[in-house]
Write a protein that binds this DNA or RNA. Structure first.
Lengths: 340, 340
DNA sequence: CTGAAAGCGCTAACAC
DNA sequence: GTGTTAGCGCTTTCAG
């Protein structure tokens, strides 16, 4: 191993020596354990500060908890995840826990979860995972786990935090119908078990039915690849019976649809309306002005972290938290006459 | 600690028992150490697979390396970072190392570095840090460290990987001048020690001088806050002597400028040209069509990971790697007559 | 070529 | 109220 890391660390022993107490006393102070006099605590804290001691997480890990939780994201490109992380961080801020992130390199990476378990993280927050419910339950069996963005109908082993995705779908359709759109297509994600997406689709379908538009229901599912998204967008737009509105499962896809539509010379929102989901920061740019559904990533992250810590600290019954979405209308779906 | 994590792990002892060998033998197989017979190796590997054994990283940490490197980003919103991470991941893929990410919550978070050291990461990759050179050297003293996006004139303790930012500045000015723009302003980042930015500014300045435009040199520096960016963009655009081109230090800022310009009724690129930096995925959207400088995040990440591992495995002299940028021209800076 | 034994830094009984 | 001690799972000498 390289020279640098051989540099001796300050350990609990050094602190004990400096404070002239036993090293167990130092440990107690660190853990706020019962039975330390103020004088002792004081001495120890002074030495800790003086020597710049910080506990070795790995050593702690071998005896119990590390006070580190792992957060796993499926990718780093979606700015919505930054909101979630902000929520998690702010929830953790007041606690003694820290977080470390893992970003799944390839779509299939259960090994990241295993790595985090191997590193002895105290708990895991899984964001937008595409794992099966069975796999998630298995993880929950091993470590306290909170899952964001994956409705788990009947799992008893992990906490979940979700946007109410069915309402998302309904809000979008309702808004588009109000604006006079009828041929509303949903551009969705091709996933094997994305129950989040399924709920969103369900909301879309039932609201379409409620509006008497069951004949226009159409869901196109594509993968996350930019190429496929482009192809699908072009196909939709150049159809004989072009839809007059496209509801995209996430903002990025919607931006791509806007791009393709404009490149084809279509006018948004007159020829076609576009709606996204997540209300990411890009929606607000004038050149996009994308109507989107806000699902408050910050809230999702905050709640997940809160639940996770409760779980780490002992709660055994699992909980499920639902956040209410809200639609933010912008130019991409507001017909001229409706605009002020 | 919660019930779940109490579940017994498969340890090296279990494997040894199952394979009917001593536990030291198992350790040797795991480490590919010298002196294990094929027969033994075979037996052990079978047991490992059968029991689903994975080494406890924390336990390893106590004896030496963890085979985990920490990557620290200043935020998660810049899609350029995803490219860097992709490069790092692909470099790590062929090795036995894994990575874990840390995202600095608040601008000032030296504690994240300390956390990673406490977790006994074998090495650190710092991306776009705003830390001072002294601080970085100190980190390099403790752990093998590679820094991306921070030119360190004379540090001997960390490896660096950088885009040649001076060339970036030059490329942009050269291109804009070719397109007939003259009043070229640079919208830069207000940072105390962002030598990356300084180099980019230096390139801008010297190329402006070279083109005989020293009179038009103007650098406006703003923070990363969306609010400030908007204010600065509006101020620039509504000036009496409005610039005819704005070179933004990063794409996101450029997108904001496009937004403000369009909202003000200006035509891009006729009234004003906009150029970004990093060539992120958003540049390609038709509604943006943003000219940008590509600095190959993937290359940066790849090289940083390569250097870091060399360092962990023993190299003591530090290295500095420079990547050559290239300009990708799009509609935002191509005057009508120049377009095909 | 294989196995026994000594810790790494810390927590948590337990003794004083 | 304070100190002693036994490991946690692993790597790494060092004997056999």
């Amino acid at each position: 191993m390289a020279r640098q890391s051989r540099q001796k660390r300050v350990t609990i022993l050094d602190v004990a020596k400096d404070a002239k107490v036993s090293f167990a006393a130092v440990s107690k102070v660190l853990r706020n354990a019962y039975g330390v006099s103020d004088a002792l605590r004081e001495k120890v804290n002074i030495s800790i500060k003086k020597l710049g001691y910080t506990p070795n997480t790995a050593a702690r890990a071998m005896r119990g908890r590390t006070f580190v939780v792992g957060v796993i994201f499926p990718d780093m490109r979606n700015p919505f995840f930054a909101d979630i992380l902000a929520g998690i961080s702010s929830a953790l801020e007041r606690t003694q826990y820290e977080s470390v992130q893992g970003i799944a390199r390839h779509s299939t990476e259960p090994s990241l979860v295993q790595s985090m378990i191997d590193m002895q993280m105290d708990g895991l927050i899984l964001v937008g995972t595409t794992a099966t419910s069975k796999a998630l339950s298995a993880v929950g069996q091993k470590k306290p786990t909170a899952v964001i963005g994956h409705h788990l109908p009947d799992t008893k082993s992990v906490d979940t935090v979700n946007n109410d995705d069915e309402i998302s779908g309904r809000l979008v359709v309702r808004h588009l119908v109000e604006q006079g759109y009828r041929k509303i297509v949903m551009l969705s994600l091709d996933t094997e078990n994305g129950t989040v997406i399924e709920r969103r689709e369900a909301g879309y379908r039932s609201e379409m039915e409620g509006a008497g538009l069951e004949g226009a229901i159409k869901v196109v599912r594509v993968s996350q690849s930019l190429r496929e998204i482009q192809v699908a967008a072009k196909a939709l737009i150049s159809r004989q019976d072009r839809p007059d509105a496209i509801f995209c499962w996430t903002d990025f896809v919607a931006l791509e649809v806007i791009s393709v539509a404009q490149a084809s010379g279509l006018n948004i929102p007159d020829d076609i309306a576009v709606v996204g989901h997540d209300n990411t920061i890009y929606c607000d740019f004038h050149q996009n002005s994308l109507t989107s559904v806000d699902q408050s990533g910050e809230q999702l992250g905050l709640q997940a972290a809160r639940l996770l810590i409760e779980r780490i600290e002992g709660r055994s019954k699992c909980e499920h938290f639902l956040v209410h979405p809200r639609l933010v209308a912008r130019r991409s779906s507001l017909r001229a006459e409706s605009v002020a």
